[in-house]
Every structure is written in C-alpha cells, then in structure tokens.
Design a protein around this nucleic acid. Sequence first.
DNA 1: GCGGGTTTGTTACAGTGTATCACCGCCAGC
DNA 2: GCTGGCGGTGATACACTGTAACAAACCCGC
Lengths: 161, 161
Amino acid sequence: MHRHDGHDACWTDAGDMLARAEATCRERGLQFTPLRREVLEAVAGSGKAQGAYDIAERLSAPGKRVAPVSVYRALDFLMEQGLVHRIASRNAFIPCAHEHAPGEGVIFLICRSCGAVDEASSADVEGGLGRTLERAGFTPTRSILEVEGDCGLCRGQGGAP
Amino acid sequence: MHRHDGHDACWTDAGDMLARAEATCRERGLQFTPLRREVLEAVAGSGKAQGAYDIAERLSAPGKRVAPVSVYRALDFLMEQGLVHRIASRNAFIPCAHEHAPGEGVIFLICRSCGAVDEASSADVEGGLGRTLERAGFTPTRSILEVEGDCGLCRGQGGAP
DNA sequence: GCGGGTTTGTTACAGTGTATCACCGCCAGC
DNA sequence: GCTGGCGGTGATACACTGTAACAAACCCGC
C-alpha cells in the first residue's frame, strides 16, 4: 500500500512518473506529445486533485492559451493509458501513483482537510465486493470506490496546515 | 439485500416510499412539502437515475415552471433525510430503496444497459474497507461505492430491452 | 396582526464536459 | 516530390451541472 511521507512528497517523483508515461506510450506505439506531458505534469504538480479548468489555467500563459477542451482530450488519453485517475466525487483528476495489476481495484482516500488523495488497494475489499456482486447476479465492468475523511497527517495536526 | 424482480418493479412501491418519507419528516419535525413530494415522486417514477434537470423538466408543465434550483434544494433536503441517493459517477439521483442502518455503507449497482440502479450492502466489504482504512491511518467520514456493469436481467436478455 | 424562520421563485452566474469544424504535421504510397 | 490519410491540436460554440443572492410567499407562535 502507498503511504504518505509528507504533504508535499505524496506522489512518486514526477520524473519517475514521466519516465513511466513515456515508456508506456512508446511500448504501445502511442504518442506522448508535449501537451500530454504538460497536462500530466500539471496534474502531478500539486498534491491535490486538479480540475480540468485549473489545469488549463495553469498551462496557459500570456500569449499561449490552452483551452479546457484540449486538457480534456489529454486527460482522456492519459486515463485510457492508466496514467491518471478521475475522482468522480470531486470532478477532478490525480496522477496514478503506481502501477496497478490489471483489473485491480483502487480505493481513493480523499482528505477533506488538505485535499490530498491517496491510493490504496485491498484484496480483502475486492474479494468481499466480488462475492456481493455475484450474490446480486451483477457482472461488473468498472467500480469506483472513494472515501472522504481525514488523513493521518491532518488528524495529527488537528486540521489543515 | 434488495433484488430486482422486474425492470419496472425494481423499487419498493412508490406509495410505500411516500408514506415512509412522510412519516420520517413528521417524526423529525420537518416539512414534507408538495414540491419535495413531487421531486421524490419524479425520482422514483423512473427505474433509472434521474438528472436534476430531467426532474425539473418532468415537473414543469405549461404555465407551471419548476426551476432546477428548486429541484436541487428539494434533493438536498431529501438526501439529508436519507430518502434519496446521489450517484456521483452519473450526476444523477435515485430514491433510497430501503431503510439503512445508521452508518451502513451502500453499494450502488448501475446497469449500463437498462440504467437501473440497485442498492446492496455488505458487511464483508465494509469490514475489509474499515481494516484497509485503519492500516492507512485514514479516518473516513463518507464513502462512495459505485459499480457499473450488467444486471442479471439485462445479461440474460443479451442487452437493453 | 406581527415578527421570525422556513420554503419557494427568479435571475444570474460559475463550473464541467462535449460537438464540430478547421488547421497542422507526419508519414506511407505512388 | 506530391498527395491523401490520419492523429493531434486550436478554436468556437454549446449543453449540462450546480450555486449565490435576493425577493416573495408561507407558516407558526406570540
């Protein structure tokens, strides 16, 4: 399981992630274009989940506007490649913190104080969910599990920094 | 656990639900106003999850417009009372199909063919999730668990009706 | 009746996401 | 070299989702 080691060092190194993204795309014969790289950097640049419009604003500069629609396209691509996750309860995006086994479920732990999003996984939860779905006669294709609360660091500090 | 017994009879009787809503509000000293009743009926009237704007449109008639903002307020109230659930992955709302034990987690099973949303709960999943969160040092306040897939009926029929 | 709280109506607006078309760059094939 | 296709990007417009702010109506106890 992935654990916080500090509010600003929550994610794996940005360099690692970019290298992994590049490798993944090359391997699959897909283009890791400058825009896609910048969007991934922007998503990873903050410890928090980023909205598409936040990303667009962050990438825009006087004389170089990045439209939200471009950001959405890049995000769609990055999500398809499993490099970025979408947080449905926030309409926001986070970089994928690690490689997932194919089909492995992810649990998002969203801190309501500092806004950081941690990823966890649990065979325990998955097993229980699988059994529950089977009992219900339901064949899953995708599942979303998001938990809001207080991360250990924030609780220790008694609130947001 | 709640089970489908047909595409059009998925929910508990609308009458039951309205009676329950009325009782809940009376018991808590809250008003079950005509608007709130209509919104609850509209949410329950279709087997599918309804968007707020769909509900507004459905409640509007020539000469009597119901604005989305009013629907949102009614939905907020109904959600606070636990009479309606929000499906984060769809930005849509469904009636609560049964009484939940306080603090009990709910699993939403969303059929991608027929759009019906079933509710399930599982002590198994909750236990596993609780242990996982504890290991992560995370204190939960709210959790969302939504599974998309094919319900038994649709899979049996090989698709949407 | 009056004051105060709650509910609803109305308008305006912010935020989120998609459709559509045009343009560019690249590369295979002639 | 030219051309035609294809994926990526830019740009505009638009639909959908949700909230803020204020006014009017309503209800209830005094």
